[in-house]
Computed example of a mutant assay.
Amino acid sequence: MQITKAGYHGILLPDLNIGFDFSTSKADHIFISHAHSDHMPRNRKESVYCTPNTYKLMKKRGYSGDATTLNFGEPVETDRARITFYPAGHILGSAMTFVESDLGNVLYTGDYRTPPSPATEGFELPENVDYFITEATFSLPVYRWASLEELTHEIQTFARETLEEGYTPVFLAYNLGKAQEVMHMLAPLDHLIQIHGAGFKLCSVYEEAGIDLGRYETYDRDTCEGKILVTTTSAINNGFASNVKKKRLAYCSGWAARESSRTQLTVDKLIPLSDHLDFFELINLCKQLDPKEVYITHTPNASVVRHYLDNMDIDSVFLNLEAETDD
């Protein structure tokens, strides 16, 4: 089974004429894992396969191609392989792609999270995997996430206490996925949320999928004070809510676990909420699957992961693809 890079973020199975998360003439069958920009086809008119929710989100982000949508567990067959999507738990619509063929089977994760984000369709695995292509964004032992219950409590407490003290709480989170997860966690507070316009246009897809985002509206500079605000770090740096003098910022990202974040970021709270799995979840999953070979992508620290896999007698290969920036 040949497994190769296809550009700065794509993967190609040349023997099967299949590609993952890229645009190219080198494969007739391209499977898109989710709607983050570095996994969408660079050619926004490329014909691809994806889940229905990924298709809806991609359309709102500029995709205008002809997508074939596949539900989770609904296989499609080419002349060389049988392909099935499994829920990845990363963002709404995110899918792992399982390819079965005479050459063996391959599981491509895209970006994934287990336990899954509560604002997704969940997380499931096929039973037997020969070749495992996994991202390893948080590939050092310093990255170990708290439980979703603990993180939800931390987010709700920050919002509640900030409001009670007369300040406006601002959560810094990527517009697609993280923002909606934070809103879902805040929904039980029943306090009006204002979200950055780029994130607001994506929320309807989540609501259509049955994800509770609470009471929310698009950001309005004139009325945002006293609301719960959800936006991005770049928007804050460009004047978002700059008229609100009494505000407190919470940075929601897996990168919040880095000690350097405490000095590099001017925020009031660091909350290590990631839409990727942590280091130990990655190692345990590889042990559970016990594949013939693991292909590691999207990490600056492949040697650490490979060391742990070597100790479990699991062969591994590093495919040097650029690390995910959406977190």
Rank of each mutant, 00 (worst) to 15 (best):
Q2D: 14
I3V: 15
T4L: 12
G10K: 07
D21T: 07
S23K: 12
T24Q: 03
T24H: 06
T24K: 06
S25F: 03
K26C: 00
A27M: 06
F31R: 08
I32V: 14
H36N: 07
H39P: 01
M40W: 06
M40R: 03
P41W: 07
R42D: 05
E46K: 05
C50Q: 13
T51I: 06
T54N: 03
K56N: 11
K60S: 13
D66H: 13
L70R: 12
L70T: 09
E74C: 11
V76R: 11
E77M: 07
D79F: 04
R80K: 15
A81L: 06
A81Q: 02
R82P: 00
I83Y: 05
I83C: 09
I83A: 02
I83G: 09
F85E: 14
G93I: 03
S94N: 00
F98G: 07
E100I: 09
G104W: 03
Y108T: 09
Y108E: 08
T109N: 05
T109W: 06
D111Y: 10
D111P: 03
Y112G: 05
R113M: 07
P115M: 07
T120C: 05
P126K: 14
N128M: 12
A136W: 13
T137S: 13
L140S: 08
P141S: 02
Y143T: 03
R144D: 13
T157D: 01
R160I: 00
L163S: 00
E165A: 00
Y167T: 00
P169E: 08
A173H: 11
L176I: 14
A179T: 11
L186K: 04
I193M: 15
Q194W: 02
I195K: 04
H196M: 12
H196V: 13
C203K: 01
C203S: 09
E208S: 08
G210S: 09
I211N: 04
Y219H: 12
I228A: 02
I228T: 06
I228E: 01
T231K: 02
T232W: 08
I236W: 09
F240S: 07
A241E: 05
N243L: 01
N243V: 05
L249N: 09
Y251K: 01
Y251G: 00
W255F: 15
A257N: 13
R258L: 14
E259W: 10
S261F: 11
V267N: 12
V267H: 04
L273C: 10
S274W: 01
L277G: 02
F280A: 03
F280D: 12
E281N: 12
E281G: 10
L282I: 06
K287L: 04
P291G: 08
I296P: 03
N301D: 14
N301Y: 15
A302S: 11
R306Q: 15
L309R: 06
D310S: 11
N311F: 09
S316W: 03
S316L: 04
E324V: 10
